[in-house]
């Protein structure tokens, strides 16, 4: 990057060290490893056989099953709906908390960060077994019927971890940016709410978007909590797959997965475009996604 004004470029020894030649080979091996099962799923979604694992003939039957079996479509829709609501909710709560952590730190921060850490180290299964009796208590013993609704239960279960993650990401983003602009805005007599809307929020935007996307993905992936808190009639996709696992997997599962993979790729592309237009380099995007 720096301008080569000083030393004249020294001709390097032509033979590159062994390690430099091995590293890309290793990277290729790892990328093949990472994509192997995904490629297998995509290929097997064109399997016309009865069972997923034994490839019969090439065909599109499994994709048509989506229209013949409303259960499949319902499960996917439940997942998408829950994912969208949980992501928006977690992003809202997490963004506000992250801004408070970054801009108004105080004695309370240690306690709150402690809570967030506790939420993020608690394994999903512990959330699952504690939420189930609690939701039953709220819904049936206290008579708050909203907690008997399938979507509400799923959204609650999926939001916990995501709130913590979004808070971290937004905090990390804002801590890296000095508060100069907000101070200038306040000095120029902007009311706090306008400063928040015009300065703080746009600054935090890449992190907010990354948080939204991550929350959505976590929700789509969530299997353990979902399988505990779900009510019949609102079974999300992963729980459907898990129950199908016991009865023998059919190629439809792979077909739906392939469709969802394509949708994910499109979403990923859109977010990358938005972040890039917001001026982030790909490295910054990764930094945001990795939480700091």
């Amino acid at each position: 990057m720096s301008a080569p004004t000083t030393a004249p470029t020294r001709t390097r020894t032509p033979r590159r060290p062994l390690l430099d030649r091995l590293l890309p080979v290793w990277a290729v091996v790892v990328f093949v490893f990472l994509f192997a099962p995904i490629i297998v799923i995509v290929v097997y979604s064109f399997n016309t056989g009865r069972l997923l694992a034994s490839f019969d003939e090439f065909g599109f039957d499994s994709f048509l099953a989506l229209f013949r079996k409303p259960v499949l479509m319902d499960a996917v829709l439940v997942s998408l709906r829950t994912g969208a609501i949980a992501a928006v909710l977690a992003t809202l709560l997490g963004t506000l908390a992250g801004i408070a952590l970054a801009r108004r730190p105080g004695k309370w921060t240690a306690w709150f960060v402690g809570l967030l850490i506790l939420v993020s180290v608690t394994p999903e299964i512990v959330d699952a077994i504690s939420l189930l009796p609690w939701l039953v208590f709220l819904g049936q013993d206290l008579g708050l019927s909203i907690f008997n609704d399938g979507t509400v239960r799923l959204v609650i279960g999926h939001s916990l971890f995501s709130v913590a993650v979004v808070s971290y990401i937004v905090r990390a983003r804002l801590v890296g940016l000095p508060a100069n602009l907000e101070e200038a805005s306040a000095d120029l007599y902007a009311p706090p709410l306008r400063t928040f809307r015009k300065i703080t929020l746009p600054l935090a935007m890449p992190a907010v978007l990354a948080g939204l996307l991550l929350s959505f993905t976590f929700s789509l992936d969530n299997t353990i909590v979902s399988s505990f808190v779900q009510v019949s009639g609102a079974t999300p996709w992963p729980v459907y797959v898990l129950s199908a696992l016991r009865g023998g997997l059919r190629p439809e599962i792979a077909a739906v997965s392939t469709i969802m993979l394509v949708l994910t790729l499109v979403a990923l592309g859109v977010v990358a475009l938005v972040l890039r237009r917001a001026g982030d380099s790909s490295t910054q995007i990764a930094r945001t996604l990795a939480g700091g």
Binding site: P37, I41, L245
Partner: peptide, 29 residues
């Protein structure tokens, strides 16, 4: 290459956890 390489790491991460694992079940059968 970085943007592309990062995307390559993120795609498996964003593919459903359960489905990826089932992919291995098919491979290892």
């Amino acid at each position: 290459w970085r943007g592309l390489l990062l995307a390559l790491v993120l795609v498996p991460f964003w593919t459903n956890f359960l489905v990826r694992t089932i992919g291995w079940q098919v491979i290892l059968a």
